[in-house]
Design a protein around this nucleic acid. Structure first.
Length: 293
DNA sequence: GTTCTAGAAC
DNA sequence: GTTCTAGAAC
């Protein structure tokens, strides 16, 4: 079981432990050392889910608390994940989340695995591991997907901690262009034959930290196992990098349609000839026929 | 994200 | 009886 800690970004006080499925009220108090009268004594209510790796945040006070750049709003509830920043009041008093393996604290025992936090933070761990890095420069790092869904499947990640598409703003356009350029270069350099590739983002990714998928369109991989896998790369759930950049240039934000998650439940359809298949094994057999020629 | 497995579908 | 999917993971 992981433990959950609320960390004051400005190190005003020690991390506060949030117990699994317990509510914790945070506001103007000796605990936070906040004396600002605009902050309610019960500014937000927090409830940690250590199994799923997030904290529910409900704003109780009248003045705005915000998650990244988005105001929560009184009475509203949002999901707070590691990598995101919670500002208790008016973009002040920033907090981050940490899920830690309790086995790493205190005296260590032999043979115990090092705690790496919640599974959804796996990419943040992998990108820092030199043995996983395929390419890196001052802005981004490229790693191979741990469970590739095709013969070639890379992830391009920025060093900057950007939790998801929702946190992207106009100022990130240049970074995203660079990520795409690096992705294009991976395709040209590493791929010997002329396989078709797509570069894009998942509408609702499971893993934290913005990552660009660079994936060959053979989908010839034992790790491609279920409908969710298939539809996440072959429906509108997969948003082309160019479309994300265009949206960011035009609106200053990336909007993901409501119900994008439903796209994962669509029938299995071949991405080449659009023919529908009834089961995954049949689909996998079918797409082999498009490999030749 | 994956693993596991109950029970639906065949 | 076997294959395959899809939801839980406290």
């Amino acid at each position: 079981m992981l433990t959950c800690w609320l960390v004051s970004e400005e190190e005003i006080h020690h991390p506060i432990q949030l117990l699994h499925h317990h509510t914790h009220t945070l506001g103007r108090s000796p605990e936070t050392k906040i004396k600002d009268q605009k902050c309610s004594r019960q500014q937000v209510e927090l409830r940690a889910d250590c199994k799923r790796g997030f904290v529910s945040v409900k704003q109780l006070g009248s003045n705005p608390s915000s998650l990244d750049d988005v105001v929560v709003g009184k009475g509203n509830q949002v999901t707070f994940k590691p990598g995101q920043k919670l500002y208790l009041l008016n973009r002040l008093y920033p907090y981050t989340l940490q899920f830690r393996d309790e086995s790493t604290s205190g005296s260590s025992l032999l043979g115990r695995k090092e705690g790496t936090g919640h599974w959804s933070q796996g990419l943040r761990v992998s990108m820092q591991d030199p043995s996983m890095q395929v390419y890196k420069d001052e802005k981004v790092v490229v790693i191979k997907d741990k469970y590739p869904k095709a013969r070639y499947h890379w992830l391009v990640l920025p060093w900057d901690s950007i939790s998801s598409l929702k946190a992207l703003r106009s100022e990130h356009v240049e970074l995203l262009r660079h990520m795409e350029q690096v992705g294009d270069r991976m395709v040209q350099q590493q791929s010997p034959n002329r396989l078709h590739f797509r570069l894009g983002y998942h509408a609702i990714p499971s893993m934290s930290h913005v990552h660009l998928h660079v994936i060959s369109q053979d989908f010839d991989s034992p790790c491609l196992k279920n409908k969710k896998h298939w539809n996440s790369f072959t429906t509108d759930y997969f948003i082309n990098s160019q479309d994300v950049i265009a949206m960011l240039e035009r609106d200053g934000r990336v909007s993901v349609k409501d119900g994008a998650g439903e796209l994962l439940k669509l029938p299995l359809r071949c991405h080449v000839c659009r023919e529908e298949q009834t089961t995954m094994p049949k689909l996998k057999e079918h797409i082999r026929t498009h490999l030749l020629s």
